[in-house]
Computed example of a mutant assay.
Amino acid sequence: MDIVRSVLYIVLLVTAGVAGASLRGTWEPGAARRPPVATMATFAVVAVFSLLQLTVAPGLFEALRRDRAAIADGQVWRLVTSVVVQDGGWPGTISNLVALAVLGTLAERLWGTGRWLGIALAVQVLGGLWGLVAQPVGAGTSLVDFGLGASLAAAAVLLGTEPRSRGPAAVSLACAVALLVLGDIHGGAAVAGAAVAGAAAGAALAIRRRERA
């Protein structure tokens, strides 16, 4: 089962990236030239805390991780702080940061900084709440990575005009649903990201139609 989940992880993220890259034509004018501020800031904060956790301050993991018992005791902030520490060691940290850099940049080019932050916060909290059932103790940036990736896939399905964007997007979303059915925490984050982004993309589509009318 671990192999199946690993394959689903890789396929979901890669196809989401492909779908997101194909949406370049829908970016706002000048988006490609603007620095992805939210992505860069989040990357820096996660990198610093993760480096400290994995080297000189291992206690950060226990202090900031998602922990169902602690959250039930009132430490609700753990749903957010768990994003900056990692439960996958160095391999998990590196892969999470690479995914954040790639998918985060594509998502910020598409959604803009404000909506990027909204989607990231939503998937972190909603994915974390699902994690209280699926994985009561844990941490990592992967919830944001999967949520942003699924947001790109949802946008490609709704806003994409070419099969090369909609095909990979459909595969990515299918993987998200499969992970959710398997009770995987990343499936919850991905489905949440797709739902939030779907609403945003639907609103953008409605505006386009009104402008053409």
Rank of each mutant, 00 (worst) to 15 (best):
V45L: 14
D67R: 09
V80G: 13
Q86W: 01
L60M: 10
V18A: 07
W77V: 11
W27K: 02
P58N: 09
V84C: 12
V84K: 09
P36C: 06
A63F: 11
S95E: 00
D73E: 13
V37D: 02
L52F: 13
F43Y: 15
F49P: 06
L23W: 04
L60Q: 06
F61E: 04
V76N: 10
A16M: 05
T55K: 09
R33I: 00
P29E: 02
E28N: 04
P58Q: 14
T42A: 15
N96W: 05
L54A: 14
V83M: 15
E28D: 09
G30Q: 00
A63L: 14
V85W: 09
D67W: 13
D87S: 12
V46F: 10
A41D: 01
D73M: 02
V48A: 15
V48Y: 14
T39P: 05
Q53G: 04
G59A: 08
L64Y: 06
A57S: 08
Q86C: 09
F43V: 13
G17V: 09
L23D: 05
S50N: 08
G88E: 07
R34G: 00
R24C: 02
R24E: 05
L51Q: 11
S22N: 05
E62S: 14
A47L: 15
T26P: 01
W27A: 00
A16G: 04
S50V: 05
T15Y: 08
L52G: 13
G89V: 12
F43W: 15
L52Q: 10
Q75W: 11
D87I: 01
A16P: 09
L51G: 15
Q53M: 11
V76R: 12
V85L: 10
R78A: 07
G59Q: 08
G89L: 11
R66D: 00
A63C: 04
F43L: 15
T93S: 15
L64C: 11
T93R: 10
A63W: 13
V45Q: 07
S82C: 14
A16I: 06
V85H: 09
G17C: 08
V18D: 02
P36K: 05
V84G: 12
G89Q: 10
A70R: 12
R68Y: 03
T81Q: 08
A31S: 03
R33N: 00
G30A: 00
E62T: 13
R33Q: 01
Q86M: 11
A38D: 03
V48I: 15
L54V: 13
P35H: 01
E28V: 06
S50M: 09
E62G: 07
T42H: 07
L54E: 14
T39Y: 08
V80M: 15
R33A: 02
G59Y: 08
F43Q: 11
G74R: 12
V46D: 08
P29S: 01
W90Y: 08
W27S: 02
G25A: 09
A70K: 10
N96F: 02
A70V: 11
W90G: 06
T93G: 07
G30S: 00
P36E: 06
A63S: 15
A72P: 03
L51R: 12
R24H: 03
Q75L: 15
S82G: 13
E62Y: 06
